[in-house]
Amino acid sequence: MTTVDSRTGSTWLDLVLRFRALGLIVALVALVGVTTALNPRFLSGQSVRDLLFAAAVTLLLACGMTVVVLTRGIDLSVGSVLGLSAYVTGSALSATGMPTVFALPLGLAVGAACGTLNGAIIHFGRVPPLVATLGTLYVLRGVVYFAAGGSRINASDLPPGFLDFGSGDVLGVPYLFAVSVLVLAAVGVFLGRYRAGRDLYALGSNPEAARLAGVPAGRRLMTAYVLSGALAGLGGVLYAARFGTVDASAGYGMELDVVAAVVVGGVAIFGGSGTTLGAGLGALLLTVIDNALPVLRIDQFWQQAIVGALILAAIALDRLVSVRAARALRRKGSHV
């Protein structure tokens, strides 16, 4: 019953997880297919670009959330971190006229600082992640309110280079989406191939066993929250670049969408299993639903209900799959 065990028995789990990604891809293709059949313009260049634009930020945040959820944690503060980072970056760009290239590191730094705060409260203060990040959700939003007040950063205040970064693309793929996908791949490799990444799975599967096996739990937890914060911070920069308008409410309530994307993407909310690929597909699926509704002329009021139903369906499916897998393994075990 240790983590080593989960490595050896992972063929089954791998299969299940791959099925999950496959299932998401099937759902995506079906949805896009139906929508396109009803309105061919849904697959036009412009429309696909728009979709990728819209998915970029959620994708990035879902990536960070995956890392945290893997350790049985949660980060509810991502929306506020995004807001803070977007505002700080936006005002730094408009006030100091600093070069656009500094925007990304600045946003990352703001986010990483918030993530460090979360990690410290959780690790050193022994505060449950739900409570800690709920608290920082309020506190950081309050800080944004203080900083921004009633002001708003308009597109005309931002350097053109920054806005071009927000709206430009290479070969039809927006820069923003490319950044998100690169990050997603990097985090995926980190989780799958590196010791520190595997440790996060171990911590989520069985914290006690992981500790006994010598995993530095505290350091790994800090890594997870700093990473989640930093990606939310980067998300803030992308947000500012894409919309050009930043006010105190940027990213408000976004945490729900991100948690939904992660859960739909097959990352188990009690830790230990899931991939960034799944979470990315989850984010993409939610964005496609969001964009398909107006095209399909479905009342936009249904959107939130659909998201909720998807979350319930996804966790119920996870449960079913894991129960079956466990039963199958037990049966296999009894034959030996």
């Binding site: 949660i74 948690v259 939904a260 959107q303 209900a305 998201v307 909720g308 139903a309 319930l312 449960r319």
Partner: peptide, 18 residues
């Protein structure tokens, strides 16, 4: 179904409001 209450009620949070 034995599902984690945090995930379930985040789901119904969205579902009921929707």
């Amino acid at each position: 179904f034995g599902l984690p209450s945090l995930a379930v009620t985040i789901g119904t949070l969205a579902l009921y409001r929707g």
